[in-house]
Nucleic acid binder design. Sequence first.
DNA 1: CACTAAAGCGGAGGCGCCTCCGTTTATTAC
DNA 2: GTAATAAACGGAGGCGCCTCCGCTTTAGTG
Lengths: 209, 209
Amino acid sequence: MAAEPSSAGRKTDAADAKRLRADAQRNRDRLVEVAAVVFAERGIDASLEEVARRAGVGIGTLYRHFPTREHLVEVVYRREAEGLCAAAGELAEKHPSDVALEQWMQRFVDYIATKRGLATSLRILLTTNSTLFSDTSGRVSQALRQLVDAAVADGTIRGDVDASDVLHALSGIYSAPDTPEWRDRSRRLVKLLMDGLRFGAGTSARAGE
Amino acid sequence: MAAEPSSAGRKTDAADAKRLRADAQRNRDRLVEVAAVVFAERGIDASLEEVARRAGVGIGTLYRHFPTREHLVEVVYRREAEGLCAAAGELAEKHPSDVALEQWMQRFVDYIATKRGLATSLRILLTTNSTLFSDTSGRVSQALRQLVDAAVADGTIRGDVDASDVLHALSGIYSAPDTPEWRDRSRRLVKLLMDGLRFGAGTSARAGE
DNA sequence: CACTAAAGCGGAGGCGCCTCCGTTTATTAC
DNA sequence: GTAATAAACGGAGGCGCCTCCGCTTTAGTG
């Protein structure tokens, strides 16, 4: 990899990614961005032609960048996961720690929404690329830990729970799928969980109940 | 067959199946028959329009009888399984028992070929209809037992094996999928197995090795 | 037989998938 | 700046999916 013209020996932004022509890079980014929206709107089976149309590129361009639907879906998913992790830091700065946690969990719902559709559609790819889920989920739970620990530390949520408790509590979201009300139900579930977490906040952490 | 005018309150041949008009029944049968051939030829993803075309019916007719590809595939599969079971008896009548067994196993290869393609395509249906595989596989291994026992009994294959041994030996066919040579390899495997089974035939059954 | 209602037929049409290839554009060399 | 070249574009076109609905056929009835 690295230098291939005479001089400039710089790596690209994304490490080893092949150098793309400026217009190609622009289109590619655009496609991913639009695809995220369209998948969210219409589900994972949305028309790729619609994605291309709304991104303002030809269908051929889409297929050059993403030879199969699964490739596109994977990239969207990774981006989603990264966004979710990044959001943890940002929310923590802007909000009291309990609010940050709540908002992050709400966003987590959207993320899971993508992930579930994905799981169906990515089975093929997962054979090849079995790290996809495992390496993102590690980073995601790390982000959650950061938020939970902070909220526990400053006493805005009760002290007798930790990140893995919360993750388990959230796991209800994974199950009971694919009714149209799933998203709303999940949001309510998060609220409920937060109420529980706030209840008894300020009592001495790790006290015996 | 089966009178139905004014009086006769008898069930149809296929138990509760709804009575079809004669032409409808004819088309349906034709479709299943042709679909079996086309799936074998082109794989499970073959064009349904081709199936309809070769069956001499309109695509609409196909979809009326089989609302989804999976429905059609399921029916084809069941038919295949039945044919396989029936073949055991027929082969046993027409051939020496070792030859019957060998030919049946060759046919078993074709059956598995269908089954594997199917497994990928029927995941959805299998959620609903989880007995599909289990209840056919019982009947199939029953058919195998019949052949093996007969061949052991008249000494054309060795006496120290039984049907479940043979089934296990065949299980190699389930694995290592989807290279184009799969079918040929499997046929060779069956031959090999038969050679092994014939070797030492006639020595006293169940003797201590 | 003629008649009729219901069942069935079939293909046009709309949409999406994906490929192929003539045209356009960014980049590099001078 | 211009020229040359490789990279990228994009949409037409071929195919398959599936639905919808006007037309045809069958199975009863008198």
